[in-house]
């Protein structure tokens, strides 16, 4: 028994060490403007919150949620901004940057000549995207608490949810990147991303849409992410969050599986 289990345990620790070395490379590459760009990433959702949540919110006034709670428009929009910034942050790292390293810099061609394997590269890059995304999420939650859009306890609960959202979109982005042919394909991807951003129950409750459209919207990953985080920061009491978590876990697992399979095929020619 022991002999059967032990080598696998050793292997797991070697694999995580090798994944960490991929993450480490990104830390080493952090310098100059790129660093500034990274740090300032969290201002974007904040700007949206202030403009749409507060500015447009002043025109709207209070909103009655399907559950019956009456909240300010900013309170309604803030968790959606958090969810979509977790999405955007994760995708930025695992699509544009990942694709550049895979296809243009040929970085991984050098890495696979070492003991590091494709799925370890995928994990290492995802971990890096998560470090970045989680920092944004934490900063945004602090702002939400400061603006009285949620309570500290709820913010604490929402943090791991935001991390999960990042993981799911990060893995998805990585899988998508392995199918990309050129930069032009990314135009389509960012368009799709923007459509999700507009219509995932972000700015108006999905209940406002016609039935068929509403079902469509409720099947998208960003809607599930918004639903999960809004439930946590605003406090709706249904059990739908379990479905959200399950959905996001499946997206993450599928994304990682496809990404590492595809990478093996692309790299081990």
């Amino acid at each position: 028994m022991v002999t059967l289990v032990l080598p696998r345990l050793v292997d797991v620790s070697a694999a995580s060490r090798r994944s960490a070395s991929v993450t480490e490379r990104n830390v080493a590459a952090l310098k100059s403007v790129y660093w500034l760009l990274l740090v300032s990433g969290f201002v974007e959702p904040l700007l949206y919150l202030l403009s749409i949540g507060v500015g447009v919110g002043a025109l709207i006034g209070d909103l009655t949620l399907p559950g019956g709670e009456v909240v300010t428009y900013a309170t309604f929009v803030a968790p959606a901004m958090l969810a979509s910034s977790a999405m955007t942050g994760a995708l930025a790292e695992t699509t544009f940057n990942f694709f550049g390293k895979l296809k243009y810099m040929k970085l991984y061609d050098g890495v696979i000549a070492t003991p590091v394997q494709p799925f370890e590269i995928a994990l290492g890059e995802l971990a890096w995207a998560m470090l970045r995304g989680s920092a944004y999420s934490a900063a945004f939650l602090v702002v939400m608490v400061a603006m009285d859009l949620t309570t500290p306890a709820r913010a604490l609960a929402a943090f791991p949810a935001a991390v999960l959202v990042g993981f799911a979109f990060g893995a998805l982005g990585m899988a998508i990147s392995t199918f990309m042919r050129s930069w032009q394909d990314f135009d389509l991807m960012s368009s799709a991303q923007f459509v999700l951003f507009l219509f995932s129950g972000t700015f108006v409750p999905a209940e406002a849409y016609p039935t068929v459209l509403r079902w469509l919207v409720e099947a998208t990953p960003l809607y599930r992410a918004v639903h999960l985080i809004r439930g946590l920061t605003v406090g709706t009491t249904d059990w739908g969050w379990l479905l959200d978590v399950l959905y996001l876990l499946v997206v993450m697992a599928a994304g990682l599986l496809i990404a590492s399979r595809r990478m093996s095929r692309l790299l081990y020619k």
């Binding site: 447009v56 709207i60 428009y73 700015f203 108006v204």
Partner: peptide, 10 residues
């Protein structure tokens, strides 16, 4: 999204 969607609430 904004004009029609959000507009419905204004």
């Amino acid at each position: 999204g904004f004009g029609v969607g959000v507009g419905a609430y204004i």
